[in-house]
Amino acid sequence: SADYSSLTVVQLKDLLTKRNLSVGGLKNELVQRLIKDDEESKGE
């Protein structure tokens, strides 16, 4: 998976916004949300 932890919070929020995901929470939560979304989209 992508190394989201190396991105800035601003970059993470931009990715979340593009996916229509919540941008609330700490950086670690944003990273986990993106990883979870990646895993769910692979399952389709």
Results as ranks from 00 to 15, higher is better:
1 S>W: 14
1 S>G: 12
1 S>D: 09
2 A>Y: 14
2 A>E: 10
2 A>W: 13
2 A>F: 14
2 A>T: 13
2 A>P: 14
2 A>C: 14
3 D>Y: 15
3 D>W: 15
3 D>I: 11
3 D>P: 11
3 D>K: 14
4 Y>H: 02
4 Y>Q: 01
4 Y>D: 00
4 Y>A: 01
4 Y>M: 02
4 Y>V: 01
5 S>V: 08
5 S>P: 06
5 S>F: 12
5 S>Q: 11
5 S>N: 13
5 S>W: 15
5 S>K: 09
5 S>L: 10
6 S>W: 07
6 S>M: 11
6 S>E: 09
6 S>D: 08
6 S>F: 08
6 S>N: 12
7 L>N: 02
7 L>E: 01
7 L>W: 09
7 L>S: 02
7 L>P: 00
8 T>V: 02
8 T>I: 02
8 T>S: 11
9 V>R: 06
9 V>T: 07
9 V>S: 05
9 V>A: 05
9 V>F: 07
10 V>T: 14
10 V>W: 11
10 V>P: 14
10 V>M: 14
10 V>I: 12
10 V>Y: 08
10 V>D: 15
11 Q>I: 06
11 Q>V: 06
11 Q>Y: 04
11 Q>W: 03
11 Q>R: 06
11 Q>C: 07
11 Q>S: 05
11 Q>K: 06
11 Q>L: 05
11 Q>T: 05
11 Q>A: 07
11 Q>H: 05
11 Q>M: 07
12 L>M: 03
12 L>P: 00
12 L>Q: 00
12 L>Y: 00
12 L>N: 00
12 L>E: 00
12 L>K: 00
12 L>V: 02
13 K>R: 15
13 K>F: 05
13 K>P: 00
13 K>H: 07
13 K>V: 11
13 K>N: 06
13 K>T: 07
13 K>M: 11
13 K>E: 06
14 D>Y: 14
14 D>I: 15
14 D>V: 14
14 D>A: 15
14 D>T: 12
14 D>C: 15
14 D>L: 14
14 D>Q: 14
15 L>G: 00
15 L>Y: 05
15 L>D: 02
15 L>S: 02
15 L>N: 02
15 L>T: 03
15 L>H: 04
16 L>C: 12
16 L>K: 00
16 L>E: 00
17 T>G: 08
17 T>W: 09
17 T>S: 13
17 T>A: 15
17 T>Y: 11
17 T>C: 11
17 T>E: 09
17 T>P: 01
18 K>N: 07
18 K>I: 08
18 K>F: 08
19 R>E: 01
19 R>F: 02
19 R>M: 02
19 R>P: 00
19 R>C: 04
19 R>T: 01
19 R>H: 02
20 N>I: 03
20 N>K: 11
20 N>M: 07
20 N>D: 06
20 N>E: 06
20 N>S: 07
20 N>T: 05
20 N>R: 11
20 N>G: 15
20 N>F: 07
20 N>Q: 08
21 L>V: 02
21 L>Y: 01
21 L>F: 01
21 L>M: 06
21 L>I: 04
21 L>R: 03
22 S>W: 08
22 S>V: 06
22 S>N: 08
22 S>K: 09
22 S>P: 15
22 S>M: 07
23 V>C: 08
23 V>K: 07
23 V>A: 09
23 V>F: 06
23 V>I: 12
23 V>P: 08
24 G>V: 15
24 G>I: 15
24 G>F: 13
24 G>P: 03
25 G>K: 02
25 G>M: 02
25 G>E: 02
25 G>Y: 02
26 L>N: 15
26 L>M: 11
26 L>Q: 11
27 K>D: 03
27 K>R: 10
27 K>W: 09
27 K>N: 03
27 K>V: 06
27 K>I: 07
28 N>E: 15
28 N>F: 12
28 N>P: 10
29 E>N: 05
29 E>M: 06
29 E>K: 05
29 E>T: 07
29 E>H: 06
30 L>Y: 03
30 L>T: 01
30 L>Q: 03
30 L>K: 02
31 V>K: 04
31 V>L: 07
31 V>M: 07
31 V>A: 04
31 V>Q: 04
31 V>F: 03
31 V>W: 03
32 Q>A: 13
32 Q>Y: 07
32 Q>N: 11
32 Q>E: 12
32 Q>L: 11
32 Q>C: 13
32 Q>T: 08
32 Q>H: 08
32 Q>M: 12
33 R>K: 04
33 R>G: 02
33 R>F: 04
33 R>V: 03
33 R>C: 03
33 R>M: 04
33 R>Y: 03
33 R>P: 02
34 L>G: 00
34 L>N: 00
34 L>V: 02
34 L>M: 03
34 L>S: 00
34 L>T: 01
34 L>Y: 01
34 L>I: 04
35 I>C: 07
35 I>P: 01
35 I>G: 03
35 I>M: 11
35 I>Q: 08
35 I>N: 06
35 I>A: 06
36 K>A: 11
36 K>N: 10
36 K>T: 09
36 K>E: 10
36 K>Q: 11
36 K>G: 06
37 D>P: 02
37 D>A: 11
37 D>M: 05
37 D>N: 12
37 D>K: 05
37 D>F: 12
37 D>Q: 06
37 D>R: 05
37 D>Y: 14
38 D>K: 03
38 D>N: 04
38 D>F: 05
38 D>I: 05
38 D>T: 04
38 D>G: 04
38 D>Q: 04
38 D>E: 05
38 D>V: 04
39 E>D: 07
39 E>N: 10
39 E>Y: 10
39 E>T: 08
39 E>R: 10
39 E>L: 14
40 E>Q: 13
40 E>M: 13
40 E>G: 09
40 E>S: 11
40 E>L: 12
41 S>F: 09
41 S>G: 10
41 S>C: 08
41 S>H: 15
41 S>M: 12
41 S>E: 08
41 S>L: 10
42 K>P: 07
42 K>N: 10
42 K>Y: 09
42 K>F: 09
43 G>T: 12
43 G>P: 10
43 G>F: 11
43 G>V: 12
43 G>Y: 11
43 G>E: 11
43 G>D: 10
43 G>C: 13
43 G>W: 12
43 G>A: 12
44 E>M: 14
44 E>H: 14
44 E>Q: 13
44 E>K: 14
